[in-house]
């Protein structure tokens, strides 16, 4: 704990807004009005029907800032109901500021139970990660997307990129990767690696690491993506072919954690956060997926007992 911040033992501070009765019950279930939900629901169905295709929608302003997950949040609110159990992660962590904020808000307007346990969640909203443990057929994963257009890398104009999608003309993207290889002998795209969905649409998988890209291919769960600021919804249904762009002699490769393990749970096959210790300059690693790491740590403790 950082000095100055109260420890977990401090009794929870009463929310100052509780003192303002005018704030309570001022908002409807799941915040959005029913008309907004219906529009988002209609557009989600179209997005599922045309995998990888960006469907425009009348994105509403949310009480969190544009760029902070307003897209994902709108999908979550249009989907959620009393039977749901919600999990929200940011960078793989359940307790990151953005995740906590979003969870707090959704619970405030819906009262749904929250969980950190990936398997227990029916609805998961995520920023920049796909959980390590495989998702099941009755789970929905909602991605927060900053820039939905993979072609933005090579073409700033929306009008032109729309045309390129219409014609399935992705030659400029291929050329970009090819030039990368010529210059660096390597594809330099780190996160946000472009993929082809159902052999038709080039899609931005949101800034997930390359590590997570293979999880999109023929998964069991429905993946829903939304960019609130850019007003686009798209989807990858279960059992859908998702392939990263690659060349025969320059295959797609995930991040290399060879020979490294999580300091905490010992996992040798999970996406790791690199932590630099200020004292010695030594680097340690820990799982980015905190729920996965917690579960493994618990199992380790039980095993050693």
């Amino acid at each position: 704990m950082t000095p100055g911040l109260p420890s977990e033992a401090t009794p929870p501070v009463a929310d100052w807004r509780d003192a303002m009765p005018s704030n309570r019950h001022r908002y409807s279930y799941a915040f959005l009005d029913e008309g907004a939900k219906r529009e988002i629901r209609r557009k989600m169905l179209k997005a599922v029907a045309i995998p990888g295709c960006q469907v425009g929608f009348g994105s509403r302003e949310m009480p969190i800032a544009r760029g902070w997950g307003t897209g994902g949040l709108q999908l979550t609110l249009a989907l959620i109901g009393p039977d749901d159990v919600l999990k929200v992660i940011d960078q793989g962590a359940d307790d990151s500021v953005n995740a906590v904020n979003i969870k707090k808000f959704v619970q405030r307007v819906t009262d749904v139970p929250l969980t950190t346990d990936t398997a227990a969640a029916t609805l998961i909203q995520t920023r920049h990660r796909i959980p390590e443990s495989p998702l099941g057929p009755h789970q929905l994963l909602v991605f927060q997307v900053p820039i939905p257009e993979p072609l933005r890398l090579v073409e700033p104009s929306e009008r032109k990129t729309r045309r390129m999608h219409a014609e399935a003309d992705y030659s400029r993207m291929w050329l970009y990767l090819y030039e990368d290889i010529v210059k660096f002998n390597e594809i330099t795209v780190g996160a946000r690696y472009p993929v082809i969905v159902n052999r038709r649409y080039l899609m931005d998988p949101s800034p997930i690491p390359r590590w997570d890209v293979p999880k999109l291919n023929r998964g069991e769960a429905l993946f829903l993506f939304c960019a609130g600021r850019e007003k686009r919804i798209y989807a990858v249904p279960p059992h859908t072919e998702v392939t990263p762009l690659s060349f025969e002699d320059f295959a797609f490769r995930v991040e290399d954690f060879h020979g490294r393990r999580c300091e905490r749970c010992g996992a040798g096959h999970s996406f790791l956060d690199e932590v630099v210790d200020d004292e010695s300059g030594r680097r340690t690693y820990s799982c980015s997926d905190t729920a996965f790491c917690d579960q493994r740590s618990r199992q380790n403790r039980q095993g050693s007992r």
């Binding site: 902070w68 940011d90 960078q91 793989g92 990151s96 500021v97 953005n98 920023r127 920049h128 990660r129 780190g190 996160a191 946000r192 800034p207 997930i208 690491p209 390359r210 590590w211 991040e255 290399d256 996406f271 790791l272 956060d273 690199e274 980015s288």
Partner: peptide, 12 residues
């Protein structure tokens, strides 16, 4: 907002 996963990917 934290971007350390993305950054890790770029570092790699």
């Amino acid at each position: 907002l934290p971007h350390y996963v993305t950054f890790q990917s770029e570092l790699d």
